[in-house]
Simulated assay, not measured.
Amino acid sequence: MASRLLLSATLFASVFAASSAFAYPVTVKSCDREVTFDAPPARAISNDVNLTEMMLALKLQDRMVGYTGISGWKTLDEGLREGVKELPELSPKYPTKEVLLNADADFYFAGWNYGMKVGGEVTPETLEPFKIKVYELTESCIHIMAKNKPTMDDMFVDLLNLGKIFDVEDRAEALVAGYRKQLDDITTRIGGIEKPVRVFVYDSGTEKPFTSGRFGIPTAMIEAAGGVNIMEDVDKSWTEVSWEPVIERNPEVVVIVNYGDVTAEQKIAFMKENPAFKNLDAVKQDRFVVLEYVEATPGPRNVQAIERLANTFHPRNM
């Protein structure tokens, strides 16, 4: 009996390995490159909290040797801490090439300004000689190539591509199908919108605010929730602007991005107590929405955040 079970297990493992091998090589589009994988990565590293959550959403912990770029910038979310408790943080901020090499990594999931800098030490080109494949966050591609402003499909494409890379396509497709259904439900609930709500994304800064422009994922999230980003004409993903256009465009809702040393409550208080903002509709009506950093950057929490935005933008349609 034992030998029969062992034979069955061995046969199953052989069939699984053969079927997995049959799926390769796979090629995915990563910004302006095509990246081919001859086998699923076994020693992956992700950078930043949102990209790491994409890996966790696809249950890829057992393919990872660690993550980077979280604790040096922001507090590690308790839910994420539970998901990666067996994995080390290899670097609190952007990793050096040595960090990736010392971990014997074979895959790096990052983005431009999400673990890589244009012309920096760690890029797809600098890692290629060491056989470390890089997949770039789609939203971040604007830093190295022309692209359309993001939609939620950008995040979905990343999940689906990760599914192909790691041979978990069914898992990725099911996850994305669920997100699409949630978005459809939100669209149906808020119904036809005569005029989108004017929204300002306040990330940080007092002298000049740091905000999300046309190419940041908040623009796609705001639009999906029935709003319009008042900085949609700024051809950047995240950038510093002056307060004058914010005041002139008079947002009806302010989205606060919560992370770092200055709390969301302090950011709201700054806007409420500053006389320059007293006539803003958002301030007069106390319409602020707080999104955690991980919700305001591409990742699995975007759709749930869109639902909260829609509830604030269109409360009568709830």
Rank of each mutant, 00 (worst) to 15 (best):
N102Y: 04
A146P: 11
Q182E: 13
E265D: 07
A110G: 05
D261K: 03
R33C: 04
A264E: 09
F166Q: 10
M54E: 08
T151W: 03
F166I: 06
F16E: 12
E207A: 08
P41G: 02
G260W: 00
A146G: 14
S212H: 11
T239I: 12
T219G: 12
E173T: 10
L162C: 07
P300V: 15
N317S: 15
N102E: 12
P209E: 06
E252T: 06
V157A: 10
V241S: 04
M54P: 02
V84M: 06
K85P: 06
M1V: 14
L51G: 00
F16M: 15
V253F: 04
N161K: 01
E128L: 09
R171K: 15
R308F: 06
S204G: 05
A103V: 01
D62T: 11
I142M: 12
V253E: 10
Y179C: 14
V289M: 00
G205Y: 00
V257F: 03
G83F: 07
K74H: 11
T151V: 05
V118E: 07
E240F: 15
K267L: 11
M271P: 03
I45F: 03
R198Y: 05
D185N: 09
A2L: 13
D77K: 06
L51W: 06
V289W: 05
V176Q: 02
D106N: 02
I70N: 01
F37P: 01
F200A: 00
K131H: 14
L100V: 01
L6A: 14
A269K: 14
T75L: 09
E194F: 13
K133M: 08
G178T: 02
R171G: 06
F12I: 12
G299Q: 01
F22N: 12
K93M: 11
T187C: 03
T263Q: 06
P92D: 01
F130P: 08
L90S: 08
S71A: 12
N302K: 14
V246K: 11
M64P: 01
F12P: 08
T75Y: 04
I222M: 01
S71R: 03
T10M: 13
S140I: 02
F16N: 06
W238E: 06
G115R: 03
S71M: 00
A42F: 14
I230E: 00
L159H: 07
V283G: 07
N317I: 01
M1I: 05
S19H: 13
I217V: 14
E252W: 02
